[in-house]
Structures are given as structure tokens and as C-alpha cells.
Design a binder for these strands. Sequence first.
RNA 1: GCCCUGAUGGUGUAGUGGCCUAUCAUGCAGCCCUGUCGAGGCUGCGACCCGGGUUCAAAUCCCGGUCGGGGCGCCA
Length: 476
Amino acid sequence: MESLGTGMRDSSHWKSTAYRTHTIGQIIENGSELLGKEVDIAGYAETVRGRGAICFLMLRDGTGKIQAFLKKDNMNEDVFNLIQNSTRESTIQVKGVVAQKRPPKIAEGEPLPPPEYEINVESGKILANAAAPLPVGVTDDVHVGLDVRLDNRHLDLRRSHINAMFQLRSKVLEYGREHLIKEGFMEMNSPKIIASASEGGTNLFPMMYFDTPAFLSQSPQLYKQLAVLGGLERVFEIGPAFRAEKHDTYRHLNEFISFDIEGAWMDDEDVMGVQERMIHHIWSSIAENDQNLIDVINEYRSSQGNETVTVEVPNLPFPRISYCEAIEIVKLGGGEIEWGDDIESHHCDIIAAKYPGFHFIPRWPMAMKPFYIHHREDEKGKTGGQLSRGFDLNYGRDEMTSGGQREHRVEVLEQNLRNMGLNPDDFAFYTDGFRYGAPPHAGWGLGVARLLMVLTGAGNVREVVLFPRDRNRVTP
RNA sequence: GCCCUGAUGGUGUAGUGGCCUAUCAUGCAGCCCUGUCGAGGCUGCGACCCGGGUUCAAAUCCCGGUCGGGGCGCCA
């Protein structure tokens, strides 16, 4: 358990490596036991202060920060000078003795802070020098634009609140996996190079597969269904999806990580249940274990004058607002919309005013859903239009998920394709999977980065994606 | 694809035709001080996106380009 609230990783069980006997986190945690012991540590030089006979080197690794104290009299003078003249963010290895740090001057009446530890350096080595000045200051209190940060993501990532966001991302995936595995889902991977459009409705990136034209996959949809038809029963996949749309918004990327599930013998309600339980598990686990990471993000947000974020564990079940109800809410709220229209962002604002958190929007018109979505002939909307078993999950105005029960009747599937102007022959690889007995099944796909945006308060999906790919960016 | 908006040192900014040999912060370099700790003090370094045009005069106005930002559409 992280005790300092620094957002650094818990390294209590990490073993020593060629470059260090201890992590900095281990020294901070066990300083009293290590007093007087000689250790080797390595890290980035966050600050190098002092010019003359003494030098204070603040070293940071992924697990903590500690001050290394250098005295010219106590060590080789060349090494001392080399370190004293090193630039910020250079990587440095030092050997020294763990000592208690002298307490800082404090105002009278203030309580003494808990003891801190430092390293009295005996020798050291510059591992790699950093060029100066840095394109993005790691600890500087100046605002830096997103584009410059993304161009220098390797440095941006050294900033504590950015680092915390990606630690949170890892936690979200960990807790999500944990929950699905508990519910009997197994992890699978589908191909990302495909011969034909897997869903239609979006543009794909074309590519050459040796001498055959092919595409990058827009979704694992059809493949996870085939896996379920084949008897894997409950599957999930966390993997990339590619869409060649020239969108330019805070919530779209051309490559994104999709968190998908598919389960046999389930309908749309069943998989909505899986989803809300999973999100509940993720949120409550973060609240329980990872508040230190949220604190780091909030510390930065406060310094920039932004409001802080809190991890509010959502109540179960999430509200279900059927498509028909949603249309009514938008109309009552003064929005112009008719049954059969898509619910657009400005409509979602009206709904979000009433349901600001997670909410499902089930039972969309069949005409608006892809061919593989199931419908029940007796379920019609108010104006008589056919309803589907497709749903969305929104958080406020933003769509997190779309999912639904799938069509398992092959003749209906082929009719749906024809209704949407597609040729069933082009989907034989898929429809053939339904000819030999198909379990009713359902599933969903969730945008991982969108979930992260909710959790971290990031206003742009690019914040929570390491190396985002958008219309104008393919590097780094 | 549509609408709106912007580009000033490494970074973030001030600047609305002459007050600009361009502001401030941060950074970087040097010096002083120093068991410092958001260290401090002093000195210095470093910029008007590119190409045309208007004007006696352009960071500032106009046109084109490039690259950003916001909104919409589409979706996860």
C-alpha cells in the first residue's frame, strides 16, 4: 500500500537489478531499517542544486523520489563535478549510505514533519545526459499545450499526474479483467487484418496483404460472435480497432482500444448487467486501492484552477432510459427530435441534465442498428417502427458503449443484410457460422479511453492514450 | 466534410498600425550564498509560422499556404 500519497508505484516486492540494490520507494518505506546501510540507486535527476562544495541531487525513479547529498570532501572530485554539472532529467546512478535527512526549517509552533531519508553519496555515475533545455518541463509550473506534450510524450509521461493517469488506465483494465474472469469470461484475440468490412457504416483503412487487398479491423464484433458460436460461451477481448473517419473531436481517435465481451444464452439485459457490475467493480476497486493516484491528478488540477475529480461509485442498477423515453425527454426539454432520429450530442445534453451519470439507452429502432442486432417482431415503437435489442451506455453526454443481443437466426440475418443494401454473399464467412446451430447471444464494446476520461476528468481522449492516432497525427 | 477561432524566445504568455532595440513567468548560462528542500540573490541568453500584398511605417491590416484549438456530423 502506498503510504506517501505520491502516486508512485508500490515496489515493496521488486527485486534488485543490475543497476540498483533498492528502488527509491523501498528506501522511503524502510528508511529506519536501512539507516547506515550502503545502497545503489538509479533515477532521473529532477533537480541538481548547489554550486560549490556541496550538492543536492533529487533523484526520481518510478517508485519515489529521494535526495542524494554530495560533499566534495567525501568523494572523487571529478565525479562530484560531473554530477553537479549534470542537466535536469539526466539518468544517474549513485552509491551511498542511507541517512536521516536534516529536518527543514519550520515556523515556530509548527509540528515537526515525520523523519525523511536521504543518501550520503560516496560515488556515482552519469548513465545518460539529458539535453537542455527540456521541450517539456517535468516539474515546471508552466502550462504546456497538448500538441507539444504529445510530440514529447516520453517527457510528458515523467510528469506525476500524467504518470498517474496511465497507472489508472492499467488498473481499470486489471479490475475489468478481474471481474469478467470471475463471471466466467475468457480472454480472446481476433485478427486485425481482415478481408472485408466487418460491420459496414464506417470507413476502413485499406492495406495490402501480400497481393490481396485487405483492411484494418474496425471491430472484433463478428469474430467474437464466431468464437461464441463455436462454443467458447463467454469471451472478452481488449484490443485495437481502426476507423478511417476524418472526425476531429475530443472523444474520437482513428485507433482506439475497444473492450469487448460476448456471451452465449444471453440477451441485451443480461449483458447490461455484466457491464454495470463490471463498472461498479472497477470504480469501487479504484476508490478502495488507488485514491493516491486520483490525489496526484487532483493536485495538478487544483494548481491549474480546475475542479477536482472524485471517484463516485455508481449505484446498481444503472438507470435504463429506453429510446422511446429518451425521445420524450428530449422533446420535453425543448429539443427538436422525432422518433427514428438519431440522438445527437446536443440531445444527450438534455438527457444528461436529468441523468448525469451512467445510464443505458436500450431498445433503439432496428433501422438505426447494424444488421447483426436482434429484434423481436412484437416489439414496436410508438409510431409502429420496429424496435431492436441494441443499447448504448452513456455517461452524461458521452457514449461509452454500444451493444445488444445479436441475431442468431441465419435467415433473419441475411434478410437484415439485404434490407441494409449489403450482399449476404460477402458475409458468408460470418453467416456460415450460424448454419449449424447458433445459441442466442449478446455483447458489447466499450471505449477504454472514454471510461478513463470519466475517471480522470480528462477533457480530451488524447490525454489518456499514450500515443494517440488522430487525423493529423501518426507520430510519435 | 461543415462552422468558428488561433499561431510571439525551449515552454506558457502580454501586445488591436508608430509608445516594440517586444512584456511577464518558467527555462538555460554564469556568479554569489547555502544542509538546501517550491531554496534565495545578482547578471546575462533566447521569439513575432511560411510566402505574397497594403502603408511613409506591419507582431498588429489583406490574400494564399502550413500547423493548432473549439463546435458539429459520425461513432467506442
